[in-house]
Nucleic acid binder design. Structure first.
Lengths: 130, 130
DNA sequence: ATCGCTGCGCTACAACTGTAGCATCTTCTT
DNA sequence: AAGAAGATGCTACAGTTGTAGCGCAGCGAT
């Protein structure tokens, strides 16, 4: 069950974002980027991270005795879901209309933008496929 | 403390939306529009509504022994805050860029759109004023 | 082999959220 | 005035989130 990214809390989303940006990080590394901003104790970062693993939003991988955390949801898919949700629930417009804005946004690769676009086009929510 | 609309839960947001749409409704009336969709018992709608009052997101007014609930945050201000949050936190773009999309969205009046625009322009988060 | 540093896994606890029942009070109707 | 129908305010309880400490284990230095 590929965890619905919309049910991540703000804290979790923030962590998700750093994981998206870096691919895979240890708890400490994650903490270095979100801890200060949030004023968290290292153990707090760990706990949140661990809960994300339980939710299936993040994968954990052991590397020489250290846990590395990897996003279980690719950024494009995550953004697509978030955009769709916001567009439909709040703006009440068709999600596809938001795509153009992505171009100016975070460092998304052409690839990713196209992917998000693909996911938002064809008004469907379900599992995609080639 | 004009409650930060970003801290409303999904359930609460849904109620907020119907209140924005109708201005002021009794618990039952609110329930009629969100209850079915959410499969809530009337008492659930009441509880959520009441919590929103406590949070200061909704005002309660007695009318012939019945409570009427009124949004404590005008729609334009609420949408502006939500848009700003989403734009900056998720899309990582300037909130103002989202304004054009509103035109096609929910039934916002020209007035409201202009207001949202005003609130999002001039990159500021704090309390506004003329 | 031992000591210390760092990471791990477990536990904790308060506040918030989802969800709702119930006893009681109001209001309308007859 | 009395009863029915509906609204109110209170209470409840489980699950989620925010926030963090603690004891134990592994690894590198001595």
């Amino acid at each position: 069950m590929t965890t619905d990214i919309r049910e991540l809390s703000r804290s979790e989303m923030e962590i998700m974002k750093v994981l998206w940006r870096h691919g895979r990080l240890s708890a400490r590394e994650v903490h270095e980027r979100v801890g200060p901003r949030r004023n968290w104790a290292l153990s707090t970062t760990r706990t949140v991270l661990e809960r994300m693993v339980q939710k299936g939003a993040v994968l954990r991988e052991r590397f020489h005795g250290v846990n590395l955390y990897i996003p279980a949801i690719p950024r494009a898919a995550g953004l697509a879901a978030l955009v769709r949700d916001f567009a439909e629930r709040v703006l009440e417009i068709d999600a596809a209309a938001v795509v153009p804005l992505l171009t100016r946004g975070a460092e998304l690769s052409e690839e990713e933008i196209r992917e998000v676009e693909r996911l938002l086009a064809r008004d469907g929510g379900g599992s995609d496929d080639a």
